[in-house]
Every structure is written in structure tokens, then in C-alpha cells.
């Protein structure tokens, strides 16, 4: 009786489990990896051209002291590009996904904070940034978008083994 019960439980979820652990899961992981890589590459490239603009996007949140505005504004796009590169080749997928998730949580926190304090800014997520008219803020959309990206990162933390990755090639 007892053994039947324990045997039945994993059986019920085994279809899903097989999909998650098996080939399909790894292909889905590849899609998540490439998707997140494109997001980071786009976000990073858009912020590289004008350093003053990138710094102002950071300053506009009115969170960091002036001494940190430039280092963060200048460095962040390259952090994003490095994450994009690592995701693209699939090296250290889990740790890169963890860093991605932490970064996205930071962004969501920053946008929420700006929203809560009633300041009117563009998140500067994909270039631009800085103060905007209060009618032009898009906090909810920005948070939803980042949350979507966060789901991709969370999947890769949960299942870092993906198709066509440097990780798979190195462990073979």
C-alpha cells in the first residue's frame, strides 16, 4: 500500500518531469539563454554611445551618491554586454543567470522606488533615461518587462543545462 502510494506520486508528474529534465527542457533552456543574451546585448549597446547620457540615466533615480553615478553609468553597459556574451556561448550558465536575476531585481527595485517616490523618469533600460514628463512615465510596463526577463533568468538558474552550450561541451 505504502509503496504503491510513493510509486504513484512521481509517476503522475513524470511526463512533465521528463520534459523539463530531458531534451525539450534543454532546448527550451537554449531559447531562454539566447533570449536573455539578446536582451542584455541590446540594453548594453544602447548605453555605450554616450557616457554622459548613461550617467544621467543613473543619476535620475536619485538613489546613488554623485561619486557612484559615473562608475555605475559607465560600467553597467559593459556588465550587460559581458553577461550577453557569456549567455550566448553558454559558459557558466547558472552563475551568469544568478547575476542576471540579481541585476534584474535591482532594476525592478530601482524603478519601483522611483515610482513610489513620485519622481518622473524614463528607466533608461535600453538607452535614453533621465527625467521625463509625468505623463510619459511607464513604470508598470517597465517592471512587467523586467519581470518577464527575470523569469528567463530564473529558469536558467533552475535548469542551467542547455543545448549548444560551452558548459555541455566542457562536461562531455
Amino acid at each position: 500500500m505504502a509503496s504503491q502510494q510513493t510509486a504513484a506520486a512521481p509517476d503522475r508528474g513524470s511526463g512533465l518531469r521528463r520534459a523539463v529534465d530531458g531534451e525539450a527542457g534543454e532546448w527550451f533552456g537554449l531559447a531562454a539563454r539566447i533570449g536573455l543574451a539578446v536582451v542584455w546585448a541590446w540594453a548594453g549597446l544602447a548605453k555605450v554611445a554616450d557616457p554622459a547620457e548613461a550617467a544621467q540615466a543613473v543619476r535620475a533615480y536619485e538613489i546613488l551618491p554623485e561619486s557612484l553615478v559615473k562608475p555605475i553609468g559607465y560600467g553597467l553597459p559593459f556588465l550587460e554586454l559581458a553577461l550577453a556574451l557569456l549567455l550566448l556561448i553558454g559558459l557558466g550558465t547558472r552563475i551568469v543567470a544568478v547575476i542576471s536575476a540579481l541585476l534584474l531585481l535591482t532594476f525592478i527595485g530601482g524603478i519601483s522606488s522611483a515610482w513610489a517616490r513620485g519622481i518622473s523618469i524614463d528607466c533608461g533600460c535600453f538607452g535614453g533615461g533621465g527625467a521625463v514628463d509625468s505623463s510619459q512615465t511607464e513604470y508598470l510596463q517597465e517592471i512587467m518587462r523586467d519581470s518577464g526577463f527575470l523569469l528567463l533568468a530564473a529558469w536558467l538558474v533552475y535548469r542551467p543545462r542547455t543545448k549548444l552550450s560551452a558548459d555541455a561541451w566542457l562536461s562531455a
Binding site: Y74, F78, L79, G92
Partner: peptide, 21 residues
């Protein structure tokens, strides 16, 4: 692998800050 990943990120960010400066 973890070390390489962190090194790539650190090198990228430091180069970036210097170049943008």
C-alpha cells in the same frame, strides 16, 4: 568555469569604465 566567468565580467566592466572615462 566560475572563475573564468567572473574574470570575464570583471575585465569587461573595468575596461568599460576606463574607456568610457
Amino acid at each position: 568555469i566560475g572563475g573564468v566567468v567572473l574574470a570575464v565580467i570583471a575585465a569587461g566592466v573595468i575596461t568599460g569604465v576606463v574607456v568610457q572615462n
